[in-house]
């Protein structure tokens, strides 16, 4: 899938700062993601990766700077506000309810009620309808190896749980999916499945922001790699323009990069 480098970024951050007391987590960071691409965010511990995605997902309000959605300035009052704008986040902790079944988890926090009196007066949930849609969402992503949607999530393996969380994000997202360390807790085989899943989400047209510590995964998946260092964007590279070692060198500060030209999404089309 090719990415149009001249398109308007679907989500963009400009000069975002955020401090927690004395600690300056973000010191004027820029970020952008174009339609149809996977952007990986890498960085050492404390570089501000998590704070950056929390700003993007509305979980944290930036101190200054601006967010642009489809080129228009936005502010998010909370995770719910960004979700209403079509930005879905899969947190590292997955945010699932283990004792509820798969279909219930897919619709957790946005359950649908039955039409008519049953729904309005008796508040009855549309269990069958939600289950049907859950089945569709899972089979669309090719992860209906999970046969039984009535199965509790706690009976699933780590990779299957991750798949459920990704499917939930994919099903409800209309603009961007943000994934925080989706493979951190998984084995090799399960990681592979989740990487395939992320690629599918991208190929279905949703841009993906991927936070990961795993360089091979990042280089396998990402169209562009945003390198975060000391609360700023140190560079944006591509798997073609730089090697893994170079990316790590930039991440740790061993290698300096002139940020201005290469950070520009448009200039990368020549790279």
């Amino acid at each position: 899938m090719t990415v149009d480098r001249t398109a308007t970024p679907i989500l963009q951050a400009r000069n975002i700062t955020k401090s927690y007391g004395q600690v300056q987590a973000l010191r004027g960071v820029d970020f952008d993601i174009l339609p149809g691409e996977i952007v990986a965010i890498i960085g050492d511990n404390g570089a501000g990766k998590s704070t950056l995605i929390k700003c993007l997902s509305g979980a944290v309000a930036p101190d200054s700077g601006e967010l642009l959605l489809d080129g228009k300035p936005v502010t998010f009052a909370g995770p719910k506000a960004s979700r209403e704008q079509g930005i879905e986040t899969v947190y590292q902790t997955l945010a699932v309810a283990p004792s509820l079944d798969i279909a219930s988890n897919l619709f957790l926090g946005r359950e649908r009620r039955r039409p008519g009196v049953l729904g309005s007066v008796f508040r009855m949930l549309d269990v069958k309808g939600m289950r049907k849609d859950a089945e569709k969402a899972l089979s669309d992503l090719g992860i209906l190896t999970v046969q039984n949607l009535g199965q509790a999530v706690e009976t699933l393996s780590g990779g299957q749980r991750q798949a459920v969380a990704v499917a939930r994000a994919e099903a409800f997202s209309s603009r961007v999916v943000i994934l925080d360390e989706p493979t951190a807790a998984l084995g090799v085989r399960e990681s592979g499945k989740v990487l395939d899943l992320i690629r599918q989400v991208r190929d279905r047209g949703l841009p993906v922001v991927l936070i990961s510590h795993n360089m091979p995964h990042v280089f396998e998946l990402a169209d562009r790699i945003h390198i975060q260092r000391l609360g700023r964007r140190a560079a944006v590279v591509t798997p073609q323009s730089h090697t893994m070692n170079e990316a790590v060198a930039i991440m740790t500060g061993a290698m300096q990069v002139d940020t201005t030209p290469s950070a520009d999404a448009a200039s990368l089309s020549k790279a």
């Binding site: 079944d101 999970v146 009535g150 199965q151 990779g159 299957q160 085989r189």
Partner: peptide, 14 residues
């Protein structure tokens, strides 16, 4: 909640 058969999902990995 579920009235379906016992959970015997094939694990993703072997």
């Amino acid at each position: 909640m579920s009235e379906q058969s016992v959970a015997t999902a094939p694990p993703a990995g072997k």
